[in-house]
Amino acid sequence: MNEHHHHINYIELPAQQLAATKAFFQQVFNWQFTDYGPEYSAFSHSGVMGGFFQSDKASNTDNGGALVVLYSSDLEGSQAKVEAAGGQIKQPIFSFPGGRRFHFVEPSGNELAVWSDK
């Protein structure tokens, strides 16, 4: 059986402000983008392939959305970069069993988190 069978292969997220969302993720996390028309952009260099589609919706835990969690070896540095790029901190750094993390909201209103075991 293929080792990738039943693995998460691609994630799609809504984007109310597609251009601002792309700029944010390029600046903070160095993601790369490939546009497929004016309403869709695929991202890479993120650990998993995915894309943002133009939408008036946003994904966050308050409305039952899945939480995408990124890893950082420098949690404080990552939080500072998120804030400097205009991201809003929803939950500042907190500890949980196994590590620490923070939650943020990017320009299109999607909530993501960043965690570290350091």
Rank of each mutant, 00 (worst) to 15 (best):
Q16C: 04
Q16A: 12
Q17K: 15
L18D: 00
L18C: 06
A20C: 02
A20R: 12
T21N: 04
K22Y: 04
A23Y: 08
A23N: 10
A23V: 03
Q26L: 03
Q27W: 02
V28D: 00
V28C: 00
N30A: 15
N30W: 02
Q32T: 14
F33D: 04
D35T: 13
G37S: 06
E39Y: 05
Y40V: 04
Y40D: 09
A42E: 14
F43K: 10
F43T: 09
F43Q: 12
F43M: 12
S44T: 15
H45E: 15
S46H: 09
S46V: 12
V48N: 11
V48I: 15
M49Y: 08
M49D: 13
M49H: 11
M49K: 13
G50T: 12
G50R: 13
G50C: 10
G51K: 06
F52A: 05
Q54W: 01
S55C: 06
D56V: 06
K57G: 02
K57T: 11
K57A: 14
K57L: 14
S59Q: 11
S59I: 07
N60F: 01
T61Y: 01
T61S: 10
N63Q: 07
N63A: 07
G64H: 11
G65I: 00
A66I: 07
V68K: 00
V69H: 06
V69P: 02
L70I: 07
L70W: 13
L70T: 00
Y71D: 11
Y71M: 11
D74K: 08
D74C: 04
D74L: 04
E76K: 09
E76Y: 01
E76A: 11
G77E: 09
G77P: 07
S78T: 14
Q79M: 13
Q79W: 03
Q79F: 01
A80T: 09
K81G: 02
V82C: 10
V82E: 08
V82W: 01
V82M: 03
E83F: 00
A84T: 07
A85I: 04
A85S: 03
A85H: 02
G87N: 09
G87S: 09
G87Y: 06
G87K: 06
G87R: 06
G87I: 05
Q88R: 09
I89K: 04
I89S: 06
Q91G: 00
Q91D: 11
I93R: 08
I93W: 07
F94M: 12
F94I: 14
S95K: 14
S95T: 14
F96A: 10
P97A: 15
G98N: 12
G98C: 12
G98W: 08
G99Y: 05
G99L: 08
